[in-house]
Design a protein around this nucleic acid. Sequence first.
DNA 1: CTGAAAGCGCTTACAG
DNA 2: CTGAAAGCGCTTACAG
Lengths: 306, 306
Amino acid sequence: MVTIKDVAREARVSTATVSYVLNETPGQTITPATQQRVRAAAASLGYAPHGVARALREGASRSVLLNVGAALSGHSLDSFIAGMTDELRRHGHSLLISAGSGIPQDAVDALRPRGVVDLDVLLSGASDDHPVFGSAGGQYAGFALHTMTQLTHLAERGHRAVAFGVPSTDDPLAATRLEHADRAARALGMAPIRTLRIDMGVDRAARTESVRALLSDTDVTAVAAYSDDVAFGVLSAVAALGLQVPDDLAVIGFDDGGHGALWDPPLTTVRIHAASFGERAARFALGIDPGIWTQSPSEVVVRATT
Amino acid sequence: MVTIKDVAREARVSTATVSYVLNETPGQTITPATQQRVRAAAASLGYAPHGVARALREGASRSVLLNVGAALSGHSLDSFIAGMTDELRRHGHSLLISAGSGIPQDAVDALRPRGVVDLDVLLSGASDDHPVFGSAGGQYAGFALHTMTQLTHLAERGHRAVAFGVPSTDDPLAATRLEHADRAARALGMAPIRTLRIDMGVDRAARTESVRALLSDTDVTAVAAYSDDVAFGVLSAVAALGLQVPDDLAVIGFDDGGHGALWDPPLTTVRIHAASFGERAARFALGIDPGIWTQSPSEVVVRATT
DNA sequence: CTGAAAGCGCTTACAG
DNA sequence: CTGAAAGCGCTTACAG
């Protein structure tokens, strides 16, 4: 491998000069001729700085660690990661990813990332004024904001009594999401939210019974689902009951996975602009101002179930 | 932060001794009493080795870079990553992930991973005898093997003329997968595979027409789909045609995403044991023998569409 | 049985 | 305007 010493020898300068030129260190006064020689030497030798040596010297590697957490599911993750990767690369950094509960200390010790972000923490939206996930000056952050998008659509269609559909299996995020929904419903002047638990297995009968009970026991006219998958479960139950969507019950999914368009009827859902979140997360981790939102963080994809 | 020097001072030994003890360097002869002192000092100070310094000295960091590639979709990725992470951790390594086409050189320069794996390359299954993805002594590797699982199921149900359903949008993996399917069909004594292109947007009419044409122009009795999503598209077209699954046309998905169980009728599909692949990929990257398969790499989840 | 020292490849005060 | 040197925190021949 070629090191800074090789470049220095080739350009007939010291390693310090090579470092100054290649890093464009401010406040230096290297003559253009020397700079030229250094750059030419670096290029001809194919020099690439040794990131680990640099990290040792600087105290941190040019990387950011993202923990995607255990709670995660949903289709926006891919684009979140893509957005974060792109923005990080623009600043000369790489993305490291871990998956589990909490930031893995061994990875931090091994790679010394410059920044760290834990999606589990961010997505729970504990802090409404978070620089990454907060709306521009608004009251809702992260998933709370997207849930607001979801419920607002229902409110605009005239629904006043709504249920939030969650998987009947334990999901660590379900309780948080339910809170978001209830808060959004109240803010929109709706009745307190109901909970609809949907069996996500092959037990169609259980799903059908849950929806039947909801319809007969309450005056709920719409279901906001935890995910597109939960929405599919509700949809199949409504069909099994011989009822119509959206007339007998409106349904809206969450975190558009694309296949909602294939369902019959095609599923209305919330599309999360996760790439923007990823970019903001990257800037936040690097200590750069994320700036103001240039687009809405989420929007409703209207298809046929509302 | 606490360094090896601090531990050495606390234990009243040199840094070399600390290193030997903590790394259990073979061929050393440190007295149990000294070892005891060193370990106690390290524990009481909460010492954790500085991975970057170690990486500089050793020439590589204790990490492996996984590029998940552009071609990727499918639900087995999460468990692949989880499996790889777990196995790596068992060997004291961390997983770095990038997403794009090809291994990002800047990340390699920055982190100097000990190993590198490119999923795009592995999944195309170019090499049948690959230590990670090859079947135990068999002829099929990676996705080729799973496609074999998929087609074998159809053959066992008596199907002789089969179509492979791909998204009509360009997908870099589609051509490769189609080859796998054709190869599997021939090996199973079936007719050469047909191609069924499925529009994945809201254009239900296009999907219906594709399936209608397939049924009227050929003697195909079953569709092996590129993904569960493609299978859903076929299913909705069959329903729109007023036909029955599996009697008029059998359908099998690929890479079980769970929501196939919610469809009506529930989708038969192929479950890929991706965590095992992840573990093997980790061992391969570290230069450890992956060993023989302890379970089949993929299996058919029989539900109601075949 | 244990310690002093070199060196991995950089960056950055400091000297001239 | 540029160079010699220290130092980031480790590991590992080598000496004793």
